[in-house]
Structures are given as C-alpha cells and as structure tokens.
Design a protein around this nucleic acid. Sequence first.
DNA 1: CCAAAAGTGTTCATGGTACACCCATGG
DNA 2: CCATGGGTGTACCATGAACACTTTTGG
Lengths: 231, 231
Amino acid sequence: MAASITLAVSTVIFALRPHPDTGHLALWLPLVRRIRSPHKGQWALPGGPLRADEDLAASAARNLRDTTALTPRYLEQLFAFGRPDRSDNRVAPENRTVSIVYWALVHADVASAGVESDNVHWFLAEDVPTLAFDHNQIIEYALWRLRNKMEYSRIATAFLGETFTLSELREVHEVVLERTLDPANFRRQIETSGDVIATDEFRMGGRHRPARLYRHNHSIELADNGPLTGR
Amino acid sequence: MAASITLAVSTVIFALRPHPDTGHLALWLPLVRRIRSPHKGQWALPGGPLRADEDLAASAARNLRDTTALTPRYLEQLFAFGRPDRSDNRVAPENRTVSIVYWALVHADVASAGVESDNVHWFLAEDVPTLAFDHNQIIEYALWRLRNKMEYSRIATAFLGETFTLSELREVHEVVLERTLDPANFRRQIETSGDVIATDEFRMGGRHRPARLYRHNHSIELADNGPLTGR
DNA sequence: CCAAAAGTGTTCATGGTACACCCATGG
DNA sequence: CCATGGGTGTACCATGAACACTTTTGG
C-alpha cells in the first residue's frame, strides 16, 4: 500500500473571559474531544481535513464557526506542522498528517459561552490539559505569537466590542502580556498611535469619573502582514 | 474521479553577489525551469512534492541542495499557500496544490556560481521575470520578510563567511534594506548587541586603515523564533 | 602628502518609564 | 466628605540619528 499524506487545518482560538477564581479577565481557548483514533477521547485543537475547493483561511474560519458559533475578529496563519512522526499513529504508520494551523481572536460575549457541549469545552490558557498529537506545543507557539503581536500591532481591539474605554484596552494588554502597564503612559501611547478614535460617549456607572469611549480605526489593518494582506 | 490535493514544498533562496553593472553587492535568487505542464518552460521556485517520510524543512533543504549544491545558512518557513485556484491547471481542474514555502539564505562563494545549467539560473531579485503560478507574489512576500528580519535579528551574518569586517556586515544590511546606514552608528549598534565577537585579525590590503575582523556569536540564535527553535 | 575607509566623540531629538498631581463621579 | 479610577504634567533615561573629528593604511 502506498504511503499517503493527509492535509488538515486546525485553529487555535483565543478569547478573554473572567477567571472563575479571581473574576479578572483571563485567556481562554476552546478544545474539542476526539471522537476517533488515534487519541480517541483526548482533547485537541478544532480542525479537520481541508475540503476539496476550500481556501486554507476559509477552512480555519469554518472550524471556528463550527466549534464556537463565532466569527473571527482576527485570523492569521500560524505555522505548518509536518514532522513525519507527529501523528503517532500506530494503526497506520505509513500515513502521516501535515497540519496547517491558524490562530484566531474572537469576542466572546455571553451568548457564545453557552455553545459548550460534551465535546467542546473552553479551557484557561494557563491550564490546558495534555492534548492529542503535538497540540500542546502548537498552543505554546500560538501564545508566543499572540504576545509578540500584542506589543507591536493593534490586535488587542479584536478582543473587545465596537467601543471600549482605554482601561479596558489596557486590561487586554495586561492579561495577555502578564504584566501591569502604567495607565498614564499607556493612554498616551495609544492616543498618539492613531489606532483608536475618541467618541463623544462615556462609560458611566463606576464610582469614579466616567471614562471616554473609543472605537478602533478601521482604516488601519489590525496587523501589518505586508504583501499578504487580505489573502 | 475524486478531487485530490497535492502537497509540495518550495524554497525561496537568497544570496548576495556583485551586480553585473555596478559591481556592488546585490540580492540574487535561483529559479528552475519547469519541465512539465502546467507552465512548462516557465521559470519557477525550486521545489517538489513532499516525500513520504520527509520533514518539511528537510524537504526544503533538499530542494536547495539539488538546485544550488549549497547548504542553507538560515532556513525558515515562510507561509503555506493554498488558494484553490492558484495552480491554474486547465488540464485537471479538480486537482489543486498546497505549497509550503520556505526561505533560505546561503553564502554564495565563487564555486557555487558554476552550478548554473540550462534549467537553473540565478536572477537579480529586482529583475525576476514572470514566473509560474503565484511564485512572483511569493517572492515579494519573502523579500518583505527578509527585510523585516534584517532589522531586528542577526540573519545578515548568514550571507557572510566565518569572519567579516563591520563594513562588510553593514553592506549586507544596506543592500537588503536599500538604504545607506551611518557607519559610526552601525558599528556601535552591532558592538553593543553582542551578536558579533572581535578577533585579533585585520583585513589588510585596502588603501586605508585595516579593518578588524569579527565572527558571529554562535551562542545566539540567528533569529528568535520562540518555542519553534530547532524544529 | 593625499585619499579613503576605520574608528571615536559629541550633540540632539525621540520615545519610553516613573511618578506626582488634578478631575469627576458614586456613595 | 472620601474612595476610586480617569486623565494631565513633567522629569528622567535610554536609544538612535547626525555629523565632526582622529587614525592608519596604500599610493
């Protein structure tokens, strides 16, 4: 029997939701339970074979929609993983899988939290179990890319709604980067970057001065991917 | 007949050699002539199908060795290109190819220049002809990544031999970035980065003060690819 | 001595960091 | 009134850009 190579697309999906213990925002990601061998029953990244007439990014977006019922606010190719031994398939060792992995940011509102089922579960990024295949390493790499991009692009707004306060935007940075940021300096950096636009509205209700709402500047791409923009 | 997806690996290979007109260094890359349909006779990136038991990076290195008889000084995955229509194959429209593209830097010494044949030819990066498939766009993207990485990593040394002067290193940056750099400031930036180590030797022979030779610091990776290092 | 590149010193602008301080709201 | 986060001002420091200047070779 001839050896065959299967091409699959998987997606690492990130969202911010409150931490169950502290109540502060935390990074979450959804995983799916494998329903067949190999690694049947283990948790894994959402994904599946690339369809015959489907673009790579479209396949990632479809997997994302199927598992979370959400639309990605940001979607980018992460890496193609193809070590011959990564499938670890004792059943058919002459077959291997090459996975083209995307990573996505979604805005997880309350509604989307209810999409969980027995086979789909959201995990804290800091508390991911042992996964099928090399998916733990893939998530590590996706986290590294997310943190890198958080520092020199405007992807943070993808976690938020249409309008947001600068405190909310700062909290996104703080949660992802795992360090506190000076509110005064953060404000100035964001304001001079031109990435956000001030509105006339304010977030009222706190026991403190109302915070101005901003919206993000749609005329600027979330991240500069050079000649690949829009691909 | 069922639709099938072919998985191929291609490589964008960069080297620096003198420009035929000006004599200054310039960016070159080797292309191969396609010997079969589609696009038979046109120039294209070196590459081919992934072998059954071959790692992705190993496949790229093999393509590189076959076309240039060289070993890559730097090799990194660029992107996976998979638009369903990118093959433009009128013969078998139900088949498509997904290409995982790598990019490489090689040190092109005199010997390697003789490896050209009727089916392998080095082109100036600024003067690449119309290529098969979407390979022109792929090269544009590889150039963008090369220029980006040149500014915040130490890949420039991959173009040079074991020892080099700071002028030579600066010229690599200048040619790739297409702008001149202040020699005094460049020197200080490189020296404080710790990327290179001064030797006791000097490059003699010019009608000017001899230049100290440096070698690169092997204890630092050429580029920080995070958890993917060594993969 | 001159030309040319190697190498050093100094100044200035910019951008980030630390932190003091005032503002506006709810309670 | 107080507590709390929103928002402003300012001083300091590190980094990089610009450029004058000295050094060492070959011719």
